[in-house]
Design a protein around this nucleic acid. Structure first.
Lengths: 107, 107
DNA sequence: ATTTATCATCGTAATATTGCAATATTAAAA
DNA sequence: TTTTAATATTGCAATATTACGATGATAAAT
């Protein structure tokens, strides 16, 4: 049905999945990689760099913001989007916990 | 359009995103967690454990197999699904590389 | 050989995502 | 204050995903 039955799962399972899902688009991976090569990031750069329409980039940025990975600061008439380092490291940690606690016991 | 313009991105960006995407569903997170608690895993157990229909579970297992995370062995009339430890660890490594090389340089 | 159990696949309905053009919104510049 | 530049939002069309019933395939059990 295209609807995910999230009430069947634990909060942690939903959170983990949500996080993976946001990273699950090449444009969003590319955005994060590009931001990390810049000293300051402005949305318009991304439009040229990534090659998607401005509206589309803006939407992807919104999703990255929704899980706290990006912070956006108004800077005059443009925006400065940056990686939220604390959140970034926290997620990396949580993710490693998931990987380390999920082990194979058979075969 | 619902169609991802994958030709715009590098192979690595697409691969990373594909991997994240597969993990981006709570049922698939739950499946991996459940398998890791069992000595042997059979699909039918998952149907009861997760609470989705058998066809749906089978589909999720297929996606996890598609990125090499699960191996399935026929065992009589049932299946034994296991985590592919080598792939699992390789993905964890790749993921950490992504996290470690994506840094904030501003703000 | 028939039945039963287990899992995969197909078809389909409901919903979500992706992408963009058009249109706001906001703030500096003229 | 009008214009310009940068980004956000809205409204859609196209496609993808999720879920499940029905059905198919396979192998053990009867």
């Amino acid at each position: 049905m295209g609807i995910t039955k999230s009430q069947m799962f634990t909060e942690r399972q939903n959170d983990l999945a949500q996080f993976f899902k946001v990273l699950g688009h090449p444009a969003r991976v590319a955005i994060l990689q590009y931001i990390s090569t810049q000293d300051a990031c402005i949305c318009n750069d991304l439009v040229e760099e990534i090659g998607l329409a401005q509206a589309t980039i803006s939407q992807h940025l919104k999703e990255l913001k929704s899980i706290g990975l990006l912070r956006g600061e108004v800077e005059g008439k443009s925006m400065c989007y940056c990686i939220n380092v604390e959140r970034w490291e926290a997620l990396q940690k949580e993710l490693n916990t998931f990987f380390n606690t999920t082990k194979s016991n058979c075969c």
